[in-house]
């Protein structure tokens, strides 16, 4: 998670307008989800992977590792969709019977499962593109521009800022405890961890008080006003995004991937 954050600040697409990246990721994801064509999903995965690794300069190994994280959840859910358990026999393309229960895969279910698998992976690759190339600060500035409630954005910002402070504090407490045999045995670990967590709560509370004082000292009045840095809008990028999305849509329609087609047909 911290590595993703670091790449978000240090990638080759860092200077690109965050709204462009945001729009690209979100629109591609919508296209990927709306059109049920395996070709579309595959195209999205390849496109996003290519841009993330080649254009943004995220190391390929790290990217593959990231993609493999949702894989385990995905495989489990896809398998449950593909298999049918029933007392009656369907037209299984593969199946077996245990006592009176028939277990098997129908052609349609297999189609749905495979489609879903690639569709999910496509959506994930879009989100990875966004989180690896766009920092939280930039995402928040885009959210602000599309009129997401300010309270929500301020909370997001504070949580993001203090996750790091809290992690650091937790690390320090953990080190201090380890240095005094805090984690030497199961019993010790159990107790130490409890103390660590309760301590973190107290410290967070204390910190929130101090932060509030510090904000007051700088004329805080109910709103965390901050300036939005300007980014240059690139007409070339906007045109590229439009063209890519149109091409994706066209390809999906021509290859017979109707709207929400695969799943419900």
């Amino acid at each position: 998670m911290f590595k993703i954050d670091q790449y978000a600040y240090a990638n080759r697409l860092g200077a690109v307008h965050p709204a462009e990246k945001f729009a690209f990721a979100v629109v591609t994801m919508i296209v990927c989800i709306v059109f049920s064509s395996m070709l579309t999903s595959l195209a999205v995965i390849l496109l996003m992977s290519f841009i993330t690794v080649r254009r943004a300069g995220i190391p390929g190994r790290f990217y593959l590792k990231l993609l493999s994280i949702p894989l385990s959840f995905l495989v489990v859910s896809v398998v449950t969709i593909a298999f049918t358990v029933s007392r009656e026999t369907y037209q299984f393309i593969y199946g077996f019977t245990v006592w009176n229960l028939h277990l098997g895969i129908t052609a349609r279910d297999l189609d749905v499962a495979v489609n879903l698998f690639f569709k999910s992976l496509g959506a994930v690759s879009c989100l990875y593109f966004l989180s690896l190339t766009t920092s939280m600060v930039e995402i928040m500035s885009v959210l602000k521009r599309i009129r997401v409630p300010l309270l929500f954005i301020e909370l997001m910002g504070l949580v993001y800022r203090f996750v790091f402070v809290l992690m650091e504090t937790a690390g320090q407490i953990h080190t201090a405890q380890s240095a005094r045999w805090g984690y030497a045995s199961f019993r010790n670990s159990y107790r130490s961890l409890g103390q660590l967590i309760s301590n973190l709560f107290i410290k967070s509370y204390h910190r929130s008080q101090m932060l509030f004082t510090a904000l007051l000292a700088r004329c805080y009045t109910d709103e965390l006003n901050v300036i939005e840095p300007g980014y240059p809008v690139s007409a070339k990028n906007v045109l590229m995004i439009v063209l890519v999305e149109l091409a994706l849509v066209a390809m999906s329609l021509f290859t017979g991937g109707g709207l929400f087609g695969g799943i419900y047909s």
Binding site: V137, G157, L158, Y160, R161, R207, L215, V226
Partner: peptide, 11 residues
């Protein structure tokens, strides 16, 4: 760490 509330230096 008690004063800095934003993740962006500029902001």
């Amino acid at each position: 760490d008690n004063q800095l509330f934003s993740a962006s230096v500029l902001q």
